[in-house]
């Protein structure tokens, strides 16, 4: 990794994280939305007496999907304010590294939200990771990274459209289905005490492919 790449990553990460620490708008909205989603899950699953041990995985991944979508949309919207995105276009930095920095900051924000969601999962649904904490963490990290790798490209594409708020989830969610399936399967297997090696490999493959694609095409997204 060359030094300009590291400096781009550092600067972008610092910018995104400092902005979020000051405003807290993405974190707060994603977190509150997730808590509301979990409460909704309880009422929806109580109606058909769904066993409580099946709910945490589903609730966790639905929260990642929808709160993540909300968060990505907000992150990009805040980038458009005050001509920040134009500044990124003009920055004499390689677009691929800007993309990787955006992926990292988005993943960190979503990961942080998730860290606060776990106690709520324990409280609401008797979620007990037990000895599966490390495999569970690995599944979530791989899943979140895959989710953000796809979402960061799509949010920048749909931001140029008339109805970006609606188009972003419509276009993004079908693309996230492999990540969602692999993520939920891996999480559930971890909770059952098994090692989901196949799903981890699948998630790693998705991550490698999408991060590479994003790295290559982000340059075209930063064109005027």
């Amino acid at each position: 990794m060359s030094s300009p790449a590291i400096s781009t990553l550092k600067m972008m990460l610092a910018k995104d994280l400092v902005r979020e620490m000051r405003s807290k708008e993405i974190f707060l909205s994603s977190f509150l939305f997730s808590v509301i989603l979990m409460a909704a899950f309880h009422f929806a699953s109580a109606a058909n007496r769904m066993p409580i041990e099946y709910i945490p995985t589903t609730a966790l991944w639905v929260c990642i999907l929808f709160s993540g979508t909300l968060g990505l949309n907000r992150t990009h919207a805040s980038e458009l304010k005050n001509g920040c995105f134009r500044a990124l276009m003009l920055a004499p930095k390689e677009a691929g590294w800007i993309y990787l920095a955006k992926v990292t900051s988005n993943a960190l924000l979503l990961g942080f939200t998730l860290c606060l969601l776990v106690p709520i999962l324990v409280l609401f649904f008797q979620f007990n990771p037990g000895s599966a904490l490390f495999p569970l963490l690995l599944s979530l990290i791989l899943g979140i990274l895959g989710f953000v790798a796809v979402g960061t490209v799509i949010v920048a594409v749909t931001a140029n459209t008339r109805m970006s708020d609606i188009l972003f989830p419509i276009i993004q969610l079908p693309l996230q289905v492999p990540v969602l399936i692999a993520g939920t399967q891996a999480t559930q297997l971890c909770l059952e005490g098994k090692t989901p090696t196949d799903w981890w490999q699948f998630l790693v493959a998705i991550n490698v492919v999408y991060l590479s694609i994003g790295f290559l095409v982000y340059e075209f997204l930063l064109e005027e």
Partner: peptide, 20 residues
């Protein structure tokens, strides 16, 4: 340009769907 980027993002998904 944006269509092409989305086309790449969607087209890449085809093998994953087949693998699934």
């Amino acid at each position: 340009r944006l269509s092409a980027i989305l086309g790449i993002a969607g087209g890449v998904m085809v093998p994953f769907v087949y693998l699934s």
